[in-house]
Simulated assay, not measured.
Amino acid sequence: MFNYNGKLFSDETQVLSHTNRGLKYGDALFETLRCVHGTLFFWEEHYFRLMASMRILRMEIPMEFTLEFLEAEIKKTIDGNQQDNAPVRVRLTIFRNGEGLYGPETNDISYLIETKTLDSPFYLVNEGEYEVELFKDYYVNKDMLSNLKTTNKLLHVVASVYAKENGYANCLLVNTDKLVVEGINGNLFLVQGNVVKTPPLADGCLDGIIRKKIIEIVSAAEDMELVEESISPFELQKSDEMFLTNSIVGIQPISKYRKKEFGKNISKSLVGKLNARARMSQTN
């Protein structure tokens, strides 16, 4: 079942019309997050990112759209799918209502909540092979819209097709300055010695929730240094480790880029600390 504007519908129900602006113009935002035993991981961060993004896109935020209201709607969807005791992937999509061309007739919104069970309640390090390559056919723009989690993801879709056609697990995206920005589905971190480096938001990467958590964890560690600086493609093969982050996987180590193979020691250390922060969100 899914939740459309507060009502639960079976998966076979068609609720979106041909006028839907998310379909016609990509006029939509979304959040994906984990829920374990009724606790939404890092829910406050997801909620405030969503509210800020809606304001940037001039969407009208309904009065009832409190943190508590949306949390209750998510949990209602989970209950409707009988997933109360399972780890769950949640996707919350917000799209602008009404007709119109590029100019919308209204800034009112609708919401859609979908849930799917996950294999593990906490983040795990993938010990398998995970090879990546640069995708250079199209570029990420260096602007605030690239920082938002919108449904305008054609670049990422085409990069995913390229990765599948060429046998890669993922691709690294570059911006208009030919700097490495992120992966298809997550933020990028490099490890060189005790330095953990990630691109700044000004380069066009997603303002990721787990990105923020890793920055907090590394910044607080006495034996590591966090650096937010642009990453050149030439730096990739000089790194000791590389990994991607997102709210569902947590930390995904990269095992190989071209001829260079990478370790996973820092990734394994950080995933334990990330799980500790997720557990803290359960008790708060």
Rank of each mutant, 00 (worst) to 15 (best):
M224Q: 11
M54K: 08
E105A: 12
M224S: 05
V181M: 06
S239I: 01
H156A: 08
L67S: 14
A220I: 07
F243G: 08
T19C: 05
G167I: 10
K197N: 02
N185L: 11
T115Q: 03
N175Y: 06
N81I: 11
S255G: 11
E64T: 10
L190S: 05
N141F: 08
N5V: 02
L112M: 02
D119F: 05
R49G: 00
S255F: 10
D137A: 13
R34W: 09
D11E: 06
V140R: 01
L134W: 15
I74T: 06
T117G: 06
L270F: 09
R34L: 08
S255C: 11
A28F: 13
E225I: 09
K136P: 01
G98E: 14
H46P: 03
E129Y: 14
P104G: 13
Q14G: 00
S146M: 03
F135S: 04
Y102N: 15
F189A: 05
K7P: 00
G208F: 03
L173R: 00
V249K: 14
R279E: 14
K116T: 11
A278Y: 03
K116F: 09
E73W: 04
F243P: 09
I113E: 01
F41V: 01
T176G: 01
D11Q: 06
L236Y: 06
H156R: 09
S269V: 11
R49N: 01
I214H: 02
I215S: 05
F234E: 04
L179A: 08
N107T: 15
V180F: 03
K76V: 09
D223Q: 13
I113P: 00
F189Q: 03
P104T: 11
A220L: 07
Y47D: 10
G103R: 14
R89F: 14
E241N: 11
N166T: 04
H37S: 09
A72Y: 07
E129F: 14
N126Q: 14
W43D: 04
E73D: 14
H18E: 10
V271T: 07
L33S: 07
F42Y: 12
F135V: 02
L70A: 12
K76W: 15
K264W: 01
A163F: 14
E225N: 08
L134K: 12
L23K: 02
V161P: 00
V90Q: 04
R277I: 04
K259N: 12
L148R: 00
Q192M: 06
S267I: 13
R49H: 05
I61G: 11
V196R: 05
F42W: 12
S255I: 10
Q83G: 07
L118S: 07
Y111V: 02
E131K: 14
A220P: 08
E73K: 14
F30N: 00
N141Y: 12
N275R: 13
S281C: 07
V15S: 00
I215K: 05
L270C: 09
Y4C: 01
R89H: 15
I215E: 08
L173W: 02
K149E: 00
T198C: 06
E114C: 10
D79V: 11
L124R: 13
H156Q: 15
E222M: 07
L67F: 10
S247N: 09
P121V: 03
E133K: 15
T198G: 05
G38L: 10
F95L: 13
G6K: 02
